[in-house]
Design a protein around this nucleic acid. Structure first.
Lengths: 197, 197
DNA sequence: GCTTTGAACTAACAATTGTTAGTTTACATG
DNA sequence: CATGTAAACTAACAATTGTTAGTTCAAAGC
């Protein structure tokens, strides 16, 4: 979540939320501080009472999601589920986070390139590790013959992650479908194809 | 293709190519005319001897790819292949165009939002039609029981297209794999899961 | 009631943006 | 040689960018 005080939503959080929505719609570079300020009915300069820079907003949003994925992965790894169930749980994790972080999740498909360098490195490192851990689970599935030996797991991983990362884009115009059903369908479509029997 | 004269590559084409590479790496808004000019070792103002505006470059690149997809779809629809073979052929089409238009293909995942409005509408219309025609083929597969009835085809379509649109991003760091093998794997991974026996 | 503080404001900044106008240079054609 | 053209150049433009400094105002804490 984004809101520290439980009374009502803090101004800082409001800024993050508004920025996320705008970054999603127009992109980071095309979103001006004026745009963000307008969304909150204040002047651009007033934003700096709450945040230190535009870049800090992007950093906050991206590091936040990255952490959410990392911690979700950890929970799944440490569970006692078998490998296929772990894959299913990863699908659910992505659906979950997509619905929870509706706007800022969009940044991971492209806007992260505008992150600057102490944090860009951190973000990419975290992302690479996530993919590596995802791949490890796939490898164990293949080793135990749950995935056909002729499947190239690098391609399978990229394919699965593409769909899951792109989900945010598709979901907003199809809100009719329930979260449960969405997860069920994605497990079918993404996993059934690579799991024998 | 991008090069009209067959002698050597025209300046206009060089501009389109350089811009595509930069748009891909930094995004449309973050790429300045100076950036493009620097890539060609000329001054920014000199670009206007060959092109009329930055927006025109984006328009050219996007309409070009959209046309390539539309015409590829038409060829497949008019072929005498059965529906499953048509799906396989669509996968090949995407792989083909991804390798052919290495850079500008990247624009379709996000930078199209910066297209302005006579052309934005045209682009989106073309894209929607493409998806509709893709879906039609999927529906026929399901009607003839090649795809399980419990699969939601809207989700299946979005999932397939996500992987195929994202391919450009993955391919550059994995050039070791051949085009043939890549198509084969994607057909397996994307289609085998939704096609019965 | 005085003081502190949070949060808005105005004004200004230096830099960068896309683009235009006018000029110069190099080369090919007559 | 003279001329025309293609394509580079310089200089300048108006607008917008993110950000800083300094100020004002209202509410909270003492």
């Amino acid at each position: 979540m984004i809101d520290p005080p439980m009374t009502d939503i803090s101004k800082k959080s409001q800024i993050y939320n508004a920025a996320a929505r705008l970054f999603r719609k127009k992109g980071y570079k095309a979103t001006s501080m004026q745009d963000i300020a307008n969304a909150l009915d204040i002047k651009a300069a007033s934003l700096y009472n709450h945040i230190s820079s535009k870049q800090e907003i992007l950093k906050f949003l991206l590091i936040n999601i990255a952490d959410a994925f990392t911690s979700g992965m950890k929970d799944i790894e440490e569970s006692s589920l078998d490998d296929i169930e772990k894959l299913e749980q990863l699908v659910i994790l992505h659906v979950d986070l997509t619905l929870r972080y509706k706007d800022s999740i969009a940044l991971i498909t492209g806007e992260w390139v505008h992150l600057e360098n102490p944090y860009l490195d951190q973000y990419l490192k975290q992302r690479n590790q996530y993919e590596k851990r995802f791949l490890t689970i796939l490898k164990r599935c293949q080793k135990h013959s749950h995935i056909d030996a002729k499947i190239n797991l690098d391609i399978a991983l990229f394919s699965i992650l593409s769909s899951l990362h792109w989900l945010y884009n598709w979901y907003n115009k199809n809100k009719s479908i329930s979260k449960i059903e969405l997860s069920r369908q994605l497990k079918l479509i993404l996993l059934k194809g690579i799991i024998n029997i």
